[in-house]
Structures are given as structure tokens and as C-alpha cells.
């Protein structure tokens, strides 16, 4: 049975003062609806603004903060190179993380107990140990396996082999650590996305003769995107900053180069500020991108933040926005 709403049943009739309860005469029925004024909100805005101004003032005029040093290094070649590495690390490890994530998620949802167990163990291990430990481990892989080779296992003949020390540079170790760790988180996100899709979709695909892989890529994943995109955006923004961890294994990223610089010139705070400003720039751009993508995947969702804030502050404006 379909449930039809009784007209007016959902309108909670709020008890109003007796004077306003009366039905206005015919000609007054075009009364305008406005929000209740909220003076408290304006006070809060004022207080917050004052606090922000004061905070900015103390920081800006603080003589211990060497703004000239900040200015000197903000666009320094070394810093920019580190910035490039940070962006590269983020993009590549997120891309690899998605690939691993989809693979592991599909394994987790498969009929095969072996695949499920393998996938479960993977997420269990890589989400259960600190990323910092994983990074250091990959960097020191040579201690465990001095030679990496392709060929017959168990001391059989090898086709090619490399010295681990030469292959596993800081950058490679960083990529390995970040993407394998990210894959474990993405697997959970993708799995939730896949499970959010109506099982009838899979059956509909199967009934017209589609293969499991086609069903996944053409039917399930596109629909899972709505659930996957928001947490993916968060992961991406988080990854931009998480890359700074690779400074412990000489990852050559923004944080690493900043550290190298301040270890030489002792301008610790100034260089941390330089790095932080760049991280803020990156995360801001990513947030804007996230917003745009999210809106694309869920039409009719929340309006842009700016409009909402204004609408909440200005009583009359809310109606205009709503009718616009």
C-alpha cells in the first residue's frame, strides 16, 4: 500500500497567542512571512570578528615572527620543488589508493572465502598499524630483502634483480606506504558505496546477460559514487597533509624541504609558516573542488555554503533566496 499524506496532517499547529490566532480579514491574506529576528546571532558575529582581528594583530605584529623570512622562502625554488613533490605524492597515492580500494572492496564482497579473508587481513593490518611505522618499514625494506628480483621463487633462477637500496628511494617508499595505507581506507569507503546500491540493480544487469565486471563498472560503481565521493574528498584533503609524514624518510616533500631549510638557518617558525600557508592553499583548492564534485553527484543537495550563511543571518533574505 502507498501511504498518502492527509492534507494538513503534517502541519504541526503551533499554539499561538490568542490575539494572532484569529483569521485575518479577506484582504489581509497576502501577509508576508519573515523569519523571527535573531539579535543574539549578530552579537556572536561581532564577538567572533573582534577576536579574529585581535588574533591577527598579535600574530602580524609579533617581532619574533620573521615575516621577511616567510616572504623570502614562500616562493623559494626549493620550497616550490617540495610543493611539487607533495602534490605528486598526493595525486599518485590517491590514484593507486582508489585502484587498490576498489579491488579490495570487490574481494571483500566476493563469494570466495579466500578472497574475503585476504582482503579482510589487508584492511585489518594496514588500518591497524601507524602509517608512520609503515613508512619507515618500506624505507628500510632493504634490511629485510636486500635484493628484489623477478623469477622463480625459492632461490630459483631470476630474470632480473635489483638492489633494494637503489630501488626504494625515499620517494618510492613514500608512494608505497601512502598508497597501500590509503587503499585500506578506500576499500572500506568503496565497500560502503557498493553496498548502498539496491541489489535489484545487480539482478537487472544479470538478467540482460551482463557479466559481473560489467555490472560492477557500468551499473554499481556509477551509482555508488554518490556515497563514495564525500568521504573520498575528505581522504584527499587529509592526504595532502598526511604526506608531510614522509619527511621522516626523506620523502623530499614540502615538509622535508622546509625541515632541511630550518635545520640550517634555525628559522623554525617562519619555515613552518611557509609550509602551512602552502598546505592551506592546497586544501582550500581541494575543498572547492570537493564541493563542486559533490554537487555534481547529488543534484538538488545543499546550496553553496555562502548562500546558506547569508540566508541564516539576514531574515528577509531567506525568503528571497527560496523563491529565486
Amino acid at each position: 500500500m502507498t501511504h498518502r499524506k492527509m492534507p494538513g496532517a503534517a502541519l504541526g499547529a503551533a499554539p499561538a497567542a490568542a490575539t494572532t490566532d484569529a483569521i485575518p480579514p479577506e484582504e489581509d491574506l497576502s501577509l508576508q512571512v519573515t523569519r523571527r529576528p535573531r539579535p543574539g546571532r549578530w552579537l556572536a558575529v561581532l564577538a567572533a570578528a573582534l577576536f579574529a582581528v585581535w588574533l591577527a594583530y598579535t600574530v602580524i605584529v609579533n617581532p619574533n615572527l620573521h615575516w621577511d623570512i616567510v616572504a623570502k622562502y614562500q616562493f623559494d625554488g626549493v620550497i616550490l620543488k617540495g610543493l611539487g613533490v607533495t602534490i605528486q605524492l598526493t595525486l599518485v597515492s590517491m590514484a593507486l589508493g582508489i585502484v587498490i580500494g576498489v579491488l579490495v572492496a570487490v574481494m571483500q564482497l566476493s563469494d570466495s572465502p579466500v578472497l574475503r579473508l585476504t582482503a579482510g587481513a589487508y584492511t585489518w593490518f594496514f588500518r591497524g598499524t601507524p602509517l608512520l611505522v609503515q613508512l619507515i618499514f618500506w624505507f628500510n625494506l632493504a634490511l629485510l630483502f636486500p635484493v628484489i628480483s623477478i623469477g622463480v621463487p625459492f632461490d630459483g633462477p631470476k630474470l632480473i634483480s635489483w638492489q633494494s637500496n637503489q630501488v626504494i628511494t625515499g620517494f618510492v617508499a613514500a608512494l608505497l606506504g601512502l598508497s597501500i595505507n590509503e587503499g585500506a581506507y578506500m576499500a572500506e569507503i568503496v565497500r560502503a558505496g557498493i553496498q548502498s546500491v539496491d541489489p535489484g540493480q545487480r539482478e537487472a544487469g544479470a538478467s540482460i546477460g551482463m557479466s559481473n565486471r560489467q555490472i560492477l563498472s557500468r551499473i554499481i560503481l556509477p551509482q555508488a559514487m554518490r556515497v563514495i565521493i564525500p568521504p573520498f574528498g575528505n581522504q584527499f584533503i587529509s592526504m595532502l597533509k598526511t604526506t608531510s609524514l614522509v619527511s621522516v624518510i626523506a620523502g623530499a616533500d614540502l615538509m622535508t624541504v622546509s625541515q632541511h631549510l630550518y635545520l640550517a638557518n634555525f628559522e623554525v617558525v617562519a619555515l613552518l609558516l611557509v609550509a602551512s600557508l602552502w598546505y592551506l592553499v592546497l586544501t582550500t583548492i581541494a575543498s572547492i573542488g570537493q564541493h563542486a564534485v559533490e554537487r555534481r553527484y547529488s543534484p538538488g543537495a545543499a546550496p553553496p555554503l555562502r548562500r546558506r550563511v547569508l540566508a541564516n543571518l539576514v531574515p528577509g533574505r531567506a525568503r528571497k533566496e527560496a523563491t529565486a
Binding site: 535489484g200 540493480q201 544479470a206 540482460i208 546477460g209 551509482q223
Partner: peptide, 29 residues
């Protein structure tokens, strides 16, 4: 899959692909 191709099925709750237009739904198979 080859056997299913020869047997069409219509479900109680339609199960159309919501991310595809009507014509794309029909083209999918």
C-alpha cells in the same frame, strides 16, 4: 550469460538503472 540473453525479465520494482536515461537503459544490454 548466454542463456540469460534469451530470457527477458521484468521485475516488480522495475530496477531501471537510475543513472541512465530511458533510451540508455534500453541500449545497455
Amino acid at each position: 550469460r548466454r542463456q540469460r540473453e534469451r530470457i527477458g525479465m521484468v521485475f516488480q520494482r522495475f530496477h531501471l538503472f537510475p543513472h541512465r536515461t530511458a533510451v540508455q537503459n534500453v541500449m545497455e544490454g
